[in-house]
Design a binder for these strands. Sequence first.
DNA 1: GCGATCAGCT
DNA 2: CACAGCTGATCGC
Length: 434
Amino acid sequence: MERGLISVDRWSDGSQAYFLTHLHSDHTRGLTSSWSKGPLFCSRITAKLFPLRFPGFDLSLLRVIDVESWHSFSLISPSSGSNTVLHVMAIDAHHCPGSVMFLFRGDFGCLLYTGDFRWEGTSKRAERARATLLNALQDNAVDVLYLDNTYCNPSYEFPSREVAAQLVADIIAAHPEHDIIIGIHDLGKEELLVHIARALNIKIWVWPERLQTMHLLGLNDVFTTKTDLTRVRAVPRYSFSINTLEGLNSICPTIGIMPSGLPWTVKPIECDDKHFGSPLTHQNSKSGEIQMGNLNGNLGLVKKFHKYIFSVPYSDHSCFAEIQSFIGLVQPNNMKGIVSSSSCYVDPIYYFGCLCKASQPAKKLHCKHENKKGGSQALAVRRKLYIESGKLTKLETQRRKDRKADYFGVRLKRFHSLRRIQRGAKIADIDFSD
DNA sequence: GCGATCAGCT
DNA sequence: CACAGCTGATCGC
């Protein structure tokens, strides 16, 4: 009676088509080289990078969805058993290389799944994505918007990546005698590194596997694996720590730069223009202070939470204002956050229900259970859509019979797992026919 | 011995 | 508090 039709960033059994928004591992959990549950649709760039992540994967399962045009294919309706046509368009999500949103249209209505995305109003790419989306939607309503709600709270404010990238370049320029390390992951932040390289006319060291990725992305000139060619190194995020920095400083003066949208990290030492040159340059006070140059009043954005470590608000997720602007543009009938985390999950309806076409009742923070009734009557479609979250119930049960350990400790750990499991959606189709 | 899951770390 | 991971331990097969 109830079976799955399509899944996005979810890899369990029971769907006829699987969609991957991008190659970060919290969206590929459950996907392995031996996976063979159906066709896997992704962007051209993701397909290009795919074999590096999943060597030996049966590439005949991989289907490229080029951005900005409609693709149609036939599936079997889980409810009626007859053929049904699914239309899908991929739109640049500008999160990491290859990342896309998926816009679906079919018997079930119209769905927009953003995956992780950054909706900067300032770039050419954003303008293009905006035009593509508007053109694709025409006058059709989006029934459900599945939204990257990572920073769906007004406290999350940060500048465009262009501004943040220049901040990083300025910090490096202000430390001409230092080695620099920048913490990055396996994919993402390439534009930041390219900006630094161009602004300072230097190459950037990366580890060998990362160089492979850069070459697949067509970035052939900027990066090197030879340490003697540059003082700027992009290193794996997990090897970037206070210990690492202290170790490096016993050999050579080195600062670390952490690009992140997260504003807190460790309690930062506040930096403002009044203390220009210090404490930003505190680590250098013995050998004389270094001037930071003119940061166009953006110096306050840079946090320094350790004598060797700077944190710069460079984010690949949308800030609150950008989320707001995106929802205002789409004006969905209903929406759901795709990111659920321990204490920070915010139902986007809480802040933006008023931007939905069918106005939503106010919701409480952190109260996911209220969703069940909430906006269901607002759906204009004949059939009701939902995100299956089967494993959640299991986890809840697990939590209850959990051992005697400290309540908060257990809770945090369980929610941590929960966050990871809840990424992605299995879009099921329930038959409500008489 | 292998994959899946979890704990701990950044 | 967590971005988006990685490593290592443990469990079931």
